[in-house]
Design a binder for these strands. Structure first.
Lengths: 197, 197
DNA sequence: AGTTTAATCGGAGGCGCCTCCGTTTATCTG
DNA sequence: CAGATAAACGGAGGCGCCTCCGATTAAACT
């Protein structure tokens, strides 16, 4: 019988020291707010300052600006994924689907500042972003499938096609009635989806 | 009978003072060499230094890095356009066409360092580059048309399609046999062009 | 608790970007 | 040729990027 064995199992090699983890979390939190407010071009030194750490610490955790963007982005994409499950429980499948699409489009819209950087990232360093987008794709797929199985929408729709349609919606240029127009277009999509069930 | 009227007609509003024109030319010359050697990411301050002017002068002439790149790029594209006429005189139309395509692909290959910046430019600020590419398109078109009219190649080929084919050739990843492979592919294209005349 | 050690911190320093404005100079006018 | 003037020059200055390495400190060890 081993005496009170210390659980020294270091488990993952990704073990961070307590202070390191704290700093990292704080950086992500601050970065998320900064990106949302001023776009991805915000000064990284500002972010470090606001997080109360040195610039060196920021760069150790996130070697490039893109790494930081990716982490923030993924976090938010994940919450979008989680929203899918939540909406599924509270609403009929078709309503859940529509509401989720609205949120998706609205979410991307707020990140318009990101688009420049994102376009570069998505073409060059695709592996960094593949996972984040996988989340979203998965969410949409599950909503679509659920609604399809219960007979609320057609079942011959490809998830990728639908995402494509959504992306053409959120690339509508800025304008006062942006949101209304998007919602109308989503409504139109939904009509199409429900049409020939 | 007006007396010796001074030709004070300012003609173009783009009248540069002698020193300004000298500096501008020198900057373009130095920039062309620098871009070729170290890629478009070269320090602009270095370029100004090498041209023997202050950084302020560089920025007055070229408000952004892209403007400078565009000018250099266009100059070289123009020489590519000129080569088309020259080749047409010295060779049979089909040979001229093939040789020109080789040069085109070879030229872009040497500018691989540019590709990153270029991709951004070509998608975002298209108007800046439209003209430069127009030159090249025109050259290819004239070669293709000449060869077509004299019965050397098919006449149902679209210039844009052919350029597309070429661009897929020059985006072949780096490798020792890069040039050979490109030439083989161009040969293949030529076979296709000559096929069903 | 005290010591060791290895991970983490953080800011100084070097470089490039870009702007602003006092100084220089080409060109025009008398 | 001298003087006027508008155009052009050029570098200092402020900011951000990113790296490097001595100082700090959490966590493991005794």
């Amino acid at each position: 019988m081993a005496s009170a064995e210390p659980k020294t199992i270091p488990s993952a090699p990704t073990r961070l020291r307590a202070d390191a983890r704290r700093n990292r979390d704080k950086l992500v939190e601050v970065a998320a707010a900064a990106f949302a407010e001023k776009g991805v071009e915000t000064s990284l030194e500002d972010i470090a300052r606001q997080a109360g750490v040195g610039i060196g610490t920021l760069y150790r955790h996130f070697p490039t600006r893109e790494h930081l963007v990716e982490v923030v982005y993924r976090r938010e994409l994940e919450s979008l994924g989680a929203a899918a499950a939540e909406l599924s429980e509270k609403h009929p499948p078709d309503v859940a689907l529509e509401e989720w699409m609205r949120r998706f489009v609205g979410y991307i819209a707020t990140k318009r500042g990101m688009s420049n950087s994102l376009r570069i990232l998505m073409t060059s360093n695709s592996s960094l972003f593949a996972e984040g987008f996988g989340q979203v794709r998965g969410a949409l797929e599950s909503l679509l499938k659920a609604a399809g199985e219960k007979g609320y929408v057609r079942t011959d729709i490809d998830t990728a096609d639908l995402m494509h349609a959504l992306s053409s919606i959120y690339s509508i240029p800025e304008s006062p009635e942006w949101r209304d127009r998007s919602y109308r277009l989503i409504g139109l999509l939904m009509d199409g989806l429900r049409a020939a069930r």
